[in-house]
Design a protein around this nucleic acid. Sequence first.
RNA 1: GCUCGCUUGGUGUAGCCCGGCCAAUCAUAUCGGCCUUUCGAGCCGAUGACAGGGGUUCAAAUCCCCUAGCGAGCACCA
Length: 518
Amino acid sequence: MVEEVNALAEEAKRERLEELAPDRAAELDAERADEDDGDGQVLPELPNADAVAEVRMRLAPNPNGPWHLGSARMPAVIGTYKERYDGWMLCRFDDTDPETKRPDLDAYDEILEAIDYLGFEPDEVVTASDRLEIYYDHARRLVEAGGAYTCSCSGEAFSELKNRAEPCPHRDTDPATTLEEFEAMVDGEYDAGDVVLRVRTDIEHPNPAMRDWVAFRMVDTPHPRDEAAGYRCWPMLDFQSGIDDRLFDVTHIIRGIDLQDSAKRQRFVYDYFDWEYPEVVHWGHVQIDDYDVKLSTSTIKALVESGELDGWDDPRAPTIASLRRRGIRGEAIVEAMIELGTSTSNVDLAMSSVYAKNRELVDDETDRAFLVRDGVRKQLVGGPARAEPPVHPDHPDRGTREIPVGDAVLVEPDDVPPNGSRVWLKGYGPVRHTRDAFEFTGEDIEIVREEGVDVVHWVPADESRPLVLRTMDGDETGRAEPGVADYAPDDLLQFERVGFARVDRHEDDESVAYFAHP
RNA sequence: GCUCGCUUGGUGUAGCCCGGCCAAUCAUAUCGGCCUUUCGAGCCGAUGACAGGGGUUCAAAUCCCCUAGCGAGCACCA
């Protein structure tokens, strides 16, 4: 009620302010928007964002495998900017290498699913390997403008000349001849390595990385996509991506420092066409702690193929699919990624940060349950026949769980009190460890508060359900209270004093859950 | 080797462009307290950083130089 009045008053003040000082009102809105972005860091403003009618960005994944956790940074940051500026976002599959980074046909859809899981939706999706004719056309125009030449030097020979800032003999090739040879490249009349199309930049450029780079090369291996399998002449990333960014009116490019020099290289092409280069933001590499597996598509692929990992969603794999299966929300990953900001230095993402975000998101709606790992069996003497702990301690209205006790319980080895000591079986009551049994003492909960009796979780020894908990450190076996069998796959549970887990499946004799985090 | 970039507590980040309000922000982490039938949540508190060295200045995390460390590019990979 008070809040309501406050809100109303706030609204009224806001309106009044609008009349008196519209500028100040807008400022306040901006501040409020920043605050709403989360309780942690907020991404910095994009350079010159207000100079464009619409902020247009692109995700440019290489579909050579499913995404690892580092890949999430791209949609997280770009997607968040899209929302902030009410902008536009393209997903462009840069799949122009049929050989070395050969596309994986399943990855296209898997990547789109990952983007969706993270909570974003591209406004348009295109595939570079569908657009070869467009790149060819632009190559022809570039040649006509004197911006490129065909070169049949071997890679080593050219590299040697280049490092001495000396032109190769083909640099003088005139546009007409170049065009002829380029058409032959397009027609597939050469084999890989025979000839390339080079951009004529500045052979004496102080940075050797800038000197006459390759725009197109021949690839003998057919592209895995049927639509593109007929092409042999493929553009290099710097050419393809540079052209596409312009054709889609991209205003802001956000990418990794490995592509630091790309902008400088592409500018040579832009200059020939008299185009203006978009704004660029670079970020450093991300490493993720807590994993033994390296954050690399090829490494993970190898481990999956060799069977060391069950699949891309093995809990030990640092992949998006894995976190998803563990029941972690895409939003938690995004928030953690946003906090990394966009600095060009390399960063370590702490998984605890992802976990903290996720806990915040799911804690309130996640039901509680007991799971005992490595249970020690104790005979129970006396006491009620059933326990009724709450489904969620903060929400009594959600009811209670009915746990039949039977005549023995299981507790975790560390929770067994010394002989003669008491322990409180959570949701059930106080017991004393006597010889090899737990004897119900019937004392009041006061002993927990005033005498420091520990509260532990437990399950009935006989009526509990076997459960495998898959964790990053391997599988753990245990027994859960019978009620867990009623939860559907994908449901989240908090195993009290163990942690959050996602119910994966129920098999005949056991249930399987994936551990998310404490 | 050539070219470019980076370096704030355990981790990430703000501040650096436009030097003073920075004995340095926020989050996470760790530890402690309160609360509590979770080692969860919440609340309170504590811990902990300007890579090093010079210089400019009344004043430097912020500007300049040097050193060290890290990284990227110099691929017919993306």
